[in-house]
Structure formats: C-alpha cells, structure tokens
C-alpha cells in the first residue's frame, strides 16, 4: 500500500479544512470496508485519510416522530440495524443495511460509506431512495442537502465537491399507511454482492385501500442506483394488487440498463428487476397495510 497520512478529526470543521487543503488527494474514512481495500489494491491513491468516527455529529443516531431518522455517516451498520429493529422502525432500511457484508463487515461498514463508495450494486442506496432520504453534506461552503437519488453520479462517483463530505442521512418519518422494503438477489446467501436489487415503498389510503404514493428503485442494473419514477407513478391511484405490482415490475425491467459481468448476465438482471420489484412491493404492501412501518 502506498503511504499516506492519517487524521482522526474531532470536529466537522477540522475534517473540512483537512479535506479542502489536500485538493482531492484526501479521502474520508468511516468504516473502511471499501476504502482500505481500494487503497491496498491501488485502485485509489490518497495523501491523507480523514477518520470521521470521532466527530460527534457523524455518530448521531436519533429518531423523532416529527423529524424522522438521523443517521450519522460514521454509524456502523450493526448499530443502526440494532437501533431500528429495537424500535421497530424503518424495517425496509434495516433489511437493506443488514445485507451489507457478513457479521464482521456489519461491525464496521456504514450507511454513509455505502453511499460514498457509490457502487451501482450498493444495497442501502435503493432503500434510502425509496425512503426519500436526504444526504446532509458539509463542506467549505457550509451545509447542503441532496436527495439520495442524486448522490451517485457514476460507478464510484458522487456529487460531493472538493472539500465536502457526507455527514449524515436524514429519513423523513414514515407516514400513516407507509411501507417499504428492499430485496436483492445473490447466488450465495451471504457474503455476496447484489446481482440485482430492488427497493420499493408505497403509501396506502382510503377504504378500499388505494396507493397514494409509491417509489421504486433498482440496484446493480445501471451505472448508478436507479430511481424508476415511471414504475412508482404507475402504482399511484391503483389498488394494491399483484397485477399492479407486476406492472411496476415490468416498467422497472424496461428501465434497467444492465450489463454482463462476473456477477451475472444482463438478461438475468433484467428479468430479476421485475421479479424483485414485485417482491419488494409485496412486502412493502404488507407493512403498509399493517398500519405503517412503525
């Protein structure tokens, strides 16, 4: 591994200043499960690694019925999943975050890191998108917010500007009649990267129930995680039926732009997009009809 310096930043300001001073040659370290591998394999070269785990704001994990969930970028998956499961909230996000690696990886990997690594196959990003998560970004120009679907711009590429870093993620409260889920397909039952993944959320209202809001997002079938607006739109106003879910799945399949690689074939990914969207919607619907995720 090429040599670099290490800074454990204790404040947002210290981190921002250190990142800005290195002009793109510095990188944030949270869980390290991607960054350390990339540095070791020479896929990324930096002069400085800025550890954000000692920054209080990056470790926040808070839930409020009015403002929703706030997850600091340095919160490891096991901690967040445990928090969500214990409180019985955001089961769709818990499902996605719980899939990131095996137990050892769960002990280190973070939601923020999963997002910043910007893998097309990242499990948590479709879940964040369907939860309408916002990315809280901080940098030399202060803080800004960006919808999760706009954060990744290409494989390994994000909307972060020089000197900026992802500080936290904010998820709005799950409204009445809301349900969300993420499912992925992997050949192995663990320790695998999604061949395809699908997140889905919907909100039900009325009696008989109609879908009043819906979001569908795909992973591993395009250069970035994909919000499939037309699939979500197709559901709005409809009754929550298998036919409606399958139609959303069909639209998702059409939106997918998959490739052949060592993890799967394009044809397989296209097919799975439809299947997984339907399955995600089925579980999201079950959650919604039980009176919301909470």
């Amino acid at each position: 591994m090429r040599a670099f310096e290490y800074l454990s930043a204790s404040s947002v300001r210290e981190a921002v200043e250190a990142l800005a001073a290195r002009n793109g040659r510095a990188r944030v370290l949270a869980g390290g499960t991607d960054l350390i591998v990339q540095l070791r394999e020479g896929r990324r070269e930096v002069d400085l690694v800025v550890d954000i785990k000692a920054i209080p704001e990056a470790n926040r994990l808070e839930f409020d019925l009015q403002t929703g969930l706030l997850v600091g970028a340095a919160v490891p998956c096991y901690r967040m999943v445990g928090f969500l499961n214990a409180a019985g909230i955001y089961p769709g996000l818990a499902a996605a975050a719980g899939l990131v690696g095996g137990t050892q990886i769960q002990g280190r990997a973070t939601l923020g890191g999963n997002l910043c690594n910007a893998s097309p196959a990242a499990d948590t990003i479709p879940a964040l998108i369907v939860h309408r998560a916002a990315c809280l970004i901080t940098g030399p120009q202060g803080e800004r917010e960006l919808p999760a679907e706009d954060f990744c711009t290409g494989p390994g590429q994000t909307a972060l500007q020089p000197g900026e870093f992802l500080l936290a993620l904010r998820l709005p409260p799950e409204p009445e009649g809301f349900g969300a889920h993420y499912v992925r397909f992997t050949p192995r039952n663990e320790m695998d990267i999604a061949v395809a993944g699908a997140g889905a959320s919907l909100r039900l209202a009325g009696s008989p129930a109609r879908i009043i809001e819906a979001r569908v997002a795909l992973g591993a079938v395009a250069p970035t995680p994909l919000l499939v607006r037309e699939a979500g739109a197709s559901l709005v106003g409809k009754a929550p039926t298998l036919e409606a879910f399958e139609e959303a799945g069909r639209l998702a399949r059409e939106a997918a732009r998959p490739i052949d690689d060592m993890r799967g074939t394009a044809a397989q990914r296209r097919h799975l997009s439809g299947v997984l969207v339907r399955r995600a919607l089925e579980t999201a619907y079950q959650r919604a009809s039980r009176g919301g995720d909470a």
């Binding site: 050949p187 192995r188 039952n189 320790m191 695998d192 990267i193 060592m262 993890r263």
Partner: peptide
Amino acid sequence: NASLLDYRMPTSLD
C-alpha cells in the same frame, strides 16, 4: 472474479 467475494465458495449459510 479473482477474489473470495466474487469467486463464490459456499458459506455456512449455503
């Protein structure tokens, strides 16, 4: 797929 991530040997869960 020259890694133990993508050369998929069975895990205890498989």
